[in-house]
Simulated scan of single mutants.
Amino acid sequence: MITFALPDSIQKLISELTKFPGIGEKTALRMILFGLRGDLVFFKNLGEAFISVYENIRICKRCFNIAEDELCEICKDPKREEGILCVVEDVGDLISIERTGQFSGRYHVLGGLVSPMENRRFEDLRINELKNSVLLYKITEIILALNPSMEAEATALYIKDFFKDLNIRITKIAHGIPMGSDIEYLDEVTMAVAIKERRELE
């Protein structure tokens, strides 16, 4: 913890910055000092950018991606393949898959995974919204692009059982992604191969 008597405004900014994952007090202070070395308009522009995100970003009503309108840019794209739906845990995973350029279908952001430790049940996920999308948009394949973990395996089995009465192909991204790793931080080549070599969920 920083014990040097910093001005209150700096302390407050450090407190806010450390709420970001991976940013501790020392890193936050280095960021602030970097900004102070230049023109103070840097802080004004940064603040305006944060406010713009706060005021303009919403959740896409179809796939739950981030958007500035009711639909995100992916859902508004008429060139996307309608019959394939890629299910991800969060928006960060969606962005990682998009960066590969290997997937041309639609997405659905679950908003989490089944987790008894966190008291998160299957019903707490966007599962009913997923079913609505499957029926409304005549989805023929669901690709489960979930981080390799026990929670993801449990979620995948729940989804498979949930759609057992519908004639839908359910696949998951290929092995090769280490257990406990995070899709959001995988390199694009690994992610592209995982999508291309997806297999049936057993």
Rank of each mutant, 00 (worst) to 15 (best):
R126F: 05
I127S: 04
N128M: 13
L130P: 03
K131N: 13
V134K: 03
L135W: 05
L135H: 13
L136W: 07
L136I: 06
Y137P: 01
Y137T: 01
Y137W: 00
Y137I: 05
I139G: 01
T140I: 12
T140Y: 14
I142R: 00
I142H: 02
I142P: 03
I142W: 07
I143H: 11
L144W: 03
A145T: 03
N147C: 13
N147F: 02
N147Y: 07
E151D: 07
E151Y: 06
E153P: 02
A154N: 12
A154T: 13
T155A: 00
Y158M: 14
I159N: 08
I159L: 08
I159D: 07
F162P: 03
F163C: 11
K164D: 15
D165P: 02
D165A: 05
D165G: 07
L166H: 09
N167S: 08
I168Q: 09
R169L: 11
R169V: 08
I170R: 11
T171P: 00
T171F: 05
T171D: 01
I173F: 04
A174V: 02
A174M: 04
H175E: 15
G176N: 13
I177G: 03
I177D: 03
G180P: 06
I183Y: 00
I183H: 00
E184H: 04
L186A: 15
V189E: 11
M191V: 01
